[in-house]
């Protein structure tokens, strides 16, 4: 709605609106907590969107996914009370910073895998056991589940992983050693594997990936 004032109305300045928003974030806890809170985190792979429920990190999206669509999907699948609340996700942001700097530790906070169901959820649970610097083939990962022949379904579970990096689906490669597809783009996967192998994330569009 626009104003129709017959006199000048001062605009709410951005700094004020930011302060008001921060107050809203602080108040939105406990019974008043949103269904989903989120923030973006700058990373060498571009801005990442991190979203969490009260139970833990539920979604991580790369920039190639449209932010509005990700938020709409979260509103539909989890709940419409979706609020930007950066400070509540500071621990996740710090972990991502450390991860991209070569820190080996798995994400230490709670993870909410409600966006994965059934077999896909089981695959993600097995996948969390694969440590930094290691890779596993789709077939070997299938072998760790109740359906050892469901290699294609394992591929689907990885491709639809709601929390890449936190659940390290980039560590799943083809049996022939090639990297395969990735939700954040094939190049991102190659760079992540190089980071875990060499301790340094190579620049985008750099030298030919050795894994291919």
């Amino acid at each position: 709605m626009t104003t129709t004032a017959p006199f000048a109305v001062p605009d709410a300045d951005p700094a004020l609106l930011a302060r008001l928003h921060a107050r809203l974030e602080d108040a939105a806890t406990g019974d008043a907590a949103p269904d989903v809170h989120y923030r973006t985190v700058d990373s060498p792979l571009g801005p990442l969107l991190v979203a969490a429920t009260e139970q833990g990190v539920a979604r991580l999206a790369f920039a190639i996914e449209d932010e509005d669509e990700v938020l709409e999907s979260l509103a539909t699948r989890i709940g419409p009370r979706v609020l930007r609340a950066p400070r509540r996700l500071d621990p996740a942001a710090r972990w991502l910073d450390h991860f991209f700097a070569g820190d080996h530790g798995p994400y230490p906070g709670p993870v909410d895998l409600r966006l994965a169901r059934g077999f896909r959820l089981a695959v993600l649970e097995r996948l969390r056991e694969v440590p930094f610097g290691r890779t596993i083939s789709y077939a070997a990962l299938a072998a760790r589940t109740d359906a050892p022949r469901a290699v294609r379904a394992v591929g689907t579970a990885c491709a639809t992983n709601p929390v890449p990096l936190v659940v390290p689906c980039h560590r799943v490669v083809r049996s022939d050693g090639s990297t395969g597809a990735y939700r954040g783009g094939a190049e991102a996967k190659v760079r992540l594997l190089a980071l875990e192998r060499d301790g340094v994330l190579p620049a985008s569009g750099g030298s030919a990936p050795r894994l291919l």
């Binding site: 949103p34 989903v36 989120y38 938020l71 709409e72 999907s73 979260l74 509103a75 539909t76 419409p80 009370r81 979706v82 609020l83 930007r84």
Partner: peptide, 10 residues
């Protein structure tokens, strides 16, 4: 998104 779906509150 269906017509009845709610926009993210943000």
């Amino acid at each position: 998104i269906s017509e009845t779906a709610k926009a993210p509150f943000e």
